[in-house]
């Protein structure tokens, strides 16, 4: 490690989703990997250029499945253990492990587990909540939720060089290129 780079990275601002996607494609082809796009609406065409996300694309659904199994299975075990083991209640000789009547709570708890796990996984993968982020330092970044489209190259990228990366971005004809301070 040679200390922290001087800036978080460089961002380029574009006027439309199409131009953002073209720029991301060009940088990805040039070998940049720590890039990210910012837009007021989902731009699904950007997904192939987000390295790492392809590999992790199953994490969120898997987390939901794990949540469903954990809470649903745990719920069933709890019902079985409390009703048949810890506090068996003999009502006219009916079976203690009366599984059909345990199913409604099991299914519903499974759904609860899946939903909570999906949301928590979304937060974890997106690193939310994150009140401070260097990108918010850019004076125009607030427009990423309104009418502007940004492409950011992080200084953590091995190819990153303040001057060469800036030139690469400027060749894509953005509305503006700026350095993002920490």
């Amino acid at each position: 490690m040679t200390g922290r780079p001087a800036a978080y990275g460089l961002i380029a601002q574009f006027g439309s989703a199409d131009r953002l996607v073209m720029a991301a494609r060009a940088l990805h082809r040039a070998g940049y990997r720590r890039i990210d796009g910012f837009s007021p609406v989902p731009v699904e065409d950007l997904d192939p250029y987000l390295s790492g996300e392809i590999r992790r694309r199953w994490l969120l659904p898997l987390a939901a499945l794990a949540g469903a199994l954990a809470l649903g299975g745990g719920g069933y075990l709890l019902q079985w253990w409390t009703s048949a083991v810890d506090y068996p209640l003999n009502v006219g000789g009916r079976p203690l492990h009366s599984w059909p009547s345990f199913l409604p709570a099991t299914v519903i708890l499974g759904i609860l587990g899946a939903a909570v796990a999906a949301v928590l996984a979304m937060f974890a993968l997106n690193r939310l909540p994150e009140p401070y982020h260097p990108l918010f330092n850019d004076p125009h970044f607030h427009r990423a939720s309104a009418d502007a489209f940004f492409l950011c190259v992080e200084s953590a990228d091995p190819l990153y060089d303040p001057r060469r990366t800036r030139r690469a971005l400027e060749e894509l004809h953005p509305d503006r290129v700026a350095e993002v301070p920490w």
Partner: peptide, 12 residues
Amino acid sequence: LGWRGSARHWLN
């Protein structure tokens, strides 16, 4: 929660 509209954010 610090939402930035990042492509990763949107994807997830």
